[in-house]
């Protein structure tokens, strides 16, 4: 039986398609997305892309300037550092550590935060209130302070600094989720579910979670930019990633001693972090305005 559509010319995009259509209208957001995808690619493929092992020391070429400078060499595109290690490979591996660990820790914080936030939002009374106040006070403690305490107890290391940042990020997710869930629980479609006899778990999975997706996407981009800056700041203070592991903030602080004779060693990792955070922020901004415009139309 041939199907015919009466309204063939009409186009009804799905909600996700709608966001994408709004999102791609902004060229800046698209460029940001491209840069972000590039960093995702680097995070996965860094070992294949880098020409040298990031920790191999080539004593014949110490403090070689980048290839675009007069006495640079094309065999080391970004030059070499004070121990003769290839800066290009180190930047790729550093970006992989910084970006990859930030993405992982944001996902962990998201999962824990949403779980706790849903519990706090769906429950009422003392339980929810205690949780709120506990998290509020945790939110007020600066990230670096949490990191210092965790490093003092467990020692330095990438995993420990990730743990500290997860602890600092969770309250934001909890807060957002809690207020959103609380708002949604008052709405009629949830009431309808309740009248149909749906359990709380079912209400959450089938009704609230799908509508929460956008909020979480925006919140995650915010958290990701904070996480990248914090991870590299802890690396910079040598509380984060330790020596055999290459991390952008850490390699920046290691090259401070030769900063005057080799400024590119400070400039390149810093610029890489900056570009990463900028891309995340631009994508986040684009996503937010796409969501806002979608609601207006």
């Amino acid at each position: 039986m041939p199907r015919f559509s009466l309204y063939q010319e009409e186009f009804h995009p799905s909600p996700f398609m709608h966001i994408w259509l709004e999102f791609k209208r902004s060229h800046f957001a698209l460029v940001g997305l491209a840069v972000l995808l590039m960093f995702c690619g680097i995070a996965v493929l860094a070992p294949l892309m880098s020409p040298y092992d990031p920790n191999i020391q080539n004593t014949n070429a110490i403090l070689l300037p980048p290839a675009w400078e007069g006495n640079g060499s094309i065999s080391h595109i970004f030059g070499t550092d004070a121990l003769g290690r290839d800066v290009f490979s180190r930047t790729l591996h550093g970006a992989r550590t910084t970006f990859g660990s930030s993405v992982i820790l944001v996902i962990i914080a998201l999962l824990i935060g949403v779980a706790l936030g849903t519990l706090a939002g769906m429950n009422k009374g003392v339980k929810s209130s205690v949780l709120n106040h506990l998290l509020d006070s945790l939110m007020a403690v600066p990230t670096l302070l949490i990191a210092i305490i965790i490093v003092a107890i467990l020692g330095t290391g990438l995993l420990n600094s990730m743990m500290a940042i997860i602890l600092a990020l969770i309250p934001q997710f909890v807060h957002q989720t809690r207020s959103f869930v609380r708002e949604e629980m008052k709405k009629d479609y949830v009431l309808l579910d309740k009248l149909d006899g749906a359990s709380s778990a079912r209400i959450f999975w089938k009704s609230i979670l799908p509508s929460m997706f956008e909020l979480l996407a925006v919140q995650s981009t915010l958290a990701l930019s904070v996480a990248i800056i914090d991870i590299s700041a802890l690396g910079f203070l040598s509380l984060g990633a330790q020596v055999p592991l290459v991390e952008l903030g850490a390699s920046l602080s290691q090259s401070l001693e030769v900063a005057y004779s080799a400024p590119w060693l400070v400039a390149l990792p810093g610029f890489c972090i900056f570009l990463m955070v900028l891309a995340v922020n631009i994508v986040g901004e684009g996503l937010r305005s796409a969501l806002r415009n979608r609601l207006i139309h």
């Binding site: 900063a259 900056f274 955070v277």
Partner: peptide, 22 residues
């Protein structure tokens, strides 16, 4: 605002030192 929000504060401080002090 987007650009300055993206600056890692330690790198910014180092840039300031390089330009204005050194």
């Amino acid at each position: 605002s987007v650009v300055s929000y993206s600056f890692p504060v330690f790198w910014l401080a180092l840039i300031f030192i390089t330009i204005f002090s050194l």
